[in-house]
């Protein structure tokens, strides 16, 4: 058995599926009966999905047009 503090240390690797099968089993077993650690895991997973959503950092208006115009200027300069 492992305690809550050890489970928290493994949280990130657990989410990345990067734990050894032995440790993963221990963490899973703990999660089955610990509502606090389960809630921590669920909230972390939920928060990661929300923060990585494309709506969080929106592109400025006209961003792509300005970028490609600058690239086009550079490309044209190669031909002269």
């Amino acid at each position: 058995m492992i305690d809550c503090k050890h489970v928290w240390d493994h949280l990130s690797d657990f989410l990345d599926d990067a734990l050894s099968s032995e440790t993963r089993k221990l963490v899973q077993k703990h999660l089955e009966h610990c509502e606090v650690c389960s809630a921590i895991l669920d909230s972390t997973r939920n928060i990661l999905i929300l923060t990585a959503d494309e709506r969080v950092f929106q592109l400025p208006l006209g961003y792509s047009e300005r970028l490609h115009a600058r690239l086009e200027d550079e490309i044209r300069s190669y031909r002269h």
């Binding site: 809630a39 921590i40 959503d53």
Partner: peptide, 20 residues
């Protein structure tokens, strides 16, 4: 050092619609 997460008893999924 270990870092302690926010302790919760339960978590209900926050849907991505909140990002509107």
């Amino acid at each position: 050092d270990s870092i302690v997460p926010e302790l919760l008893r339960d978590w209900r999924e926050v849907p991505s619609e909140v990002l509107e």
